[in-house]
């Protein structure tokens, strides 16, 4: 996965678009999951909250962008969607769209989201605080953060 340490707000369109990747963003609009299967050349796909992301797994090799929509910030289905795609080995962009609030971004990053195009722009100062607040994590996720239990047992790292 192409990663960069600092968020790079980019003007892919006029809308707010926060991106944590160094590669060139896809310039093709994402199509619905059903349309994606009908269009063999499509590389950008949009997953709505009720869609089954596992349908996409056999086709991930041609995908460069997956948009995952959050119709309401309380609807957490998209967190599992991102985990499932990363666990299937997908390394392309996963973009969170919709009702994405600043306090969600930290958890979304851990689930494998690496770009954000929310309905309402995020205050960069508040985001920086939110992303740097927690010094450790308690469990593995889609990022490379090392869980606390592993830090407690460095002797296990090599064996």
């Amino acid at each position: 996965m192409a990663e960069s340490g600092n968020p790079l707000p980019q003007a892919a369109s006029e809308a707010y678009y926060l991106r944590f990747r160094d590669d060139v963003p896809a310039d093709e609009p994402a199509v619905s999951l059903d349309s994606f299967f009908e269009q063999p050349n499509a590389v950008s796909v949009r997953i709505e909250a009720g869609d089954d992301p596992e349908r996409l797994i056999p086709h991930l090799s041609r995908v460069t962008l997956v948009e995952v929509d959050f119709p309401k910030f309380r609807d957490g289905r998209g967190f599992s969607t991102a985990r499932i795609l990363r666990e299937a080995g997908y390394t392309g962009e996963i973009k969170a769209t919709g009702d994405v609030l600043v306090d969600l971004v930290y958890f979304m990053r851990r689930c494998g989201f690496d770009s954000f195009a929310p309905d309402v722009a995020i205050d960069p100062a508040v985001l920086e605080d939110a992303l740097s607040r927690y010094p450790y994590v308690y469990q593995h996720a889609a990022d490379d953060a090392v869980p606390i239990w592993q830090l407690r047992h460095p002797e296990l790292a090599n064996g």
Binding site: R74, G76, F79, Y106, F107, R110, Y138
Partner: peptide, 14 residues
């Protein structure tokens, strides 16, 4: 308790 604290995937459960 530890493993479910701030679990990212399950931070906005139904």
């Amino acid at each position: 308790r530890q493993m479910t604290s701030f679990h990212p995937e399950f931070s906005y459960l139904p």
